[in-house]
């Protein structure tokens, strides 16, 4: 009981993942700035932003449905934090692990987007509503290739448990190479999930101000921002756990370091990708996902089915 509480609240739960999320946001921002030949923020910037937002006035629009408006950030934060709990970091024994948890993780990662939708919709601002509708429209485009890519990796390992899957790839590290197409697809799809360029359509600043977040301020906005950071960490950690689970090969302390470095490398890749592209339009985004990402994911699926037949014979 106490162990469970510890892992939910402290490590690898809320406290750890929040701090890691804020550090990851700093690395993302700093790298983005350096790639653009700028200086970038100092190391404490993300913490300072968070604390500042906590102290700011909280405004609820008078037309908003207060209960929904207030609960949406909490829902999103909880779901994002819970996702991280299910990802084994360096030891295979994760207390919450069960067969089929990979599906659960994918669905938990979807909940923040839906919570943003609810929060945006019930804040009744036109910009929020357009933003939240865009967010959900986008969800249908990137979710399918993301699921296909991640589940095809699971298919090769012949298990629905993330733990078993990681152990499988630890035994056969060379098999990770087969999943590179899947990794590329899920990396791009993750950009859509995290609402970063070129898929930052739901919060396109120059069109709809801040999308679903337009009416949020103060503590709620701080929680939403934190959710985005945690989502980024959790999503990257999922990619690392599925495609490059090398951390299990090492002793706990070193494995932990390897895991963190791998997650940060994925975040760096995301930062690089968003530096070199312009924001797409929603119709172009859906076109892109169905015309390019889904065929690639299907290819990965097909490849893994064939490989499975060959390797297990």
């Amino acid at each position: 009981m106490i162990e469970a509480l510890f892992s939910i609240l402290i490590f690898p739960g809320f406290l750890f993942v929040s701090i890691f999320g804020l550090i990851a946001e700093y690395i993302d921002r700093k790298l983005y700035a350096r790639l653009q030949n700028r200086v970038g923020p100092p190391w404490f910037q993300t913490f300072a932003d968070f604390i500042k937002l906590l102290g700011k006035e909280d405004i609820v629009p008078c037309d908003a449905t207060v209960r929904m408006f207030n609960s949406a950030p909490l829902f999103a934060l909880t779901a994002a934090t819970a996702t991280f709990l299910y990802i084994p970091i360096w030891k295979a024994q994760n207390i919450f692990s069960f067969n089929g948890d990979i599906i659960m993780i994918l669905y938990l990662l979807t909940i923040p987007t839906l919570a943003f939708f609810i929060g945006g919709w019930y804040s009744t601002s036109l910009f929020s509503r357009i933003g939240s509708v865009r967010g959900v429209t986008q969800l249908f485009a990137y979710e399918v290739p993301l699921f296909m890519a991640i589940l095809s990796a699971a298919l090769l390992a012949d298990t629905w448990s993330l733990k078993e899957m990681m152990l499988f790839y630890t035994r056969h590290p060379a098999y990770c190479l087969f999943n590179l197409a899947g990794f590329a697809v899920s990396l791009v799809a993750l950009l859509g999930k995290l609402e970063k360029a070129p898929f930052d359509i739901p919060e396109a600043e120059t069109e709809i101000v801040a999308g679903a977040f337009t009416e949020y301020s103060g503590k709620r906005l701080a929680l939403l921002k934190l959710t985005l950071d945690i989502e980024m960490v959790a999503g990257s950690a999922l990619l690392v756990a599925v495609f490059f689970p090398f951390s299990l090969m090492f002793y706990p302390a070193l494995g932990f370091v390897v895991f963190i470095i791998e997650v940060l490398a994925v975040i760096a890749l995301l930062a690089l990708l968003r530096t070199v592209v312009a924001r797409l339009r929603i119709d172009q985004m859906i076109d892109f996902c169905w015309k390019y990402l889904v065929p690639f994911a299907l290819f990965q699926l097909l490849l893994n089915i064939i490989l499975k037949g060959v390797l297990y014979r």
Partner: peptide, 12 residues
């Protein structure tokens, strides 16, 4: 560049 969400072009 900024209007189409391409901030790198803006910075450069």
């Amino acid at each position: 560049g900024h209007e189409i969400g391409f901030d790198t072009l803006l910075m450069y």
